[in-house]
């Protein structure tokens, strides 16, 4: 399933979607960046409430499929600009991290 399809089916808001046709496989939830680097699989949907600029670097270097900011968390303009520049997809939702995981777990 592509990032665009996932966003549409789970009603996730596009925050920065420079590569919406990227395929997403599986998911990961966590806010400790090194933990994510160590455990998240490539091309996964990463659910987090962390929204600082470093999430873009982590997602880019670890080949994350898309970041999903849960619990109504928003991203600053510089985070959005950097994500677009680096080709990192970011979606957002008002759902909790758990609800988000349940929703995407039914699809991918």
């Amino acid at each position: 399933m592509t990032v665009n399809e996932l966003a549409a089916k789970c009603s996730l808001n596009p925050v920065a979607v420079p590569d919406g046709e990227k395929e997403v496989e599986g998911g990961y939830a966590g806010d400790l960046l090194s933990w994510v680097m160590g455990r998240a699989r490539e091309n996964c949907a990463w659910i987090t409430i962390m929204s600082n600029i470093n999430i873009v670097a982590v997602a880019s270097l670890a080949d994350i499929g898309c970041i999903i900011l849960a619990e109504g968390v928003t991203a600053d303009e510089n985070v959005i600009a950097t994500a677009n520049e680096k080709g990192v997809n970011i979606l957002s939702t008002q759902m909790t991290a758990y609800e988000t995981a349940v929703a995407i777990g039914k699809l991918i």
Binding site: L32, L33, S34, W35, M37, G38, M50, N52, N54
Partner: peptide, 10 residues
């Protein structure tokens, strides 16, 4: 900031 999880060297 989300760092300092003690996972860097591992």
């Amino acid at each position: 900031l989300g760092f300092g999880a003690g996972m860097g060297l591992p």
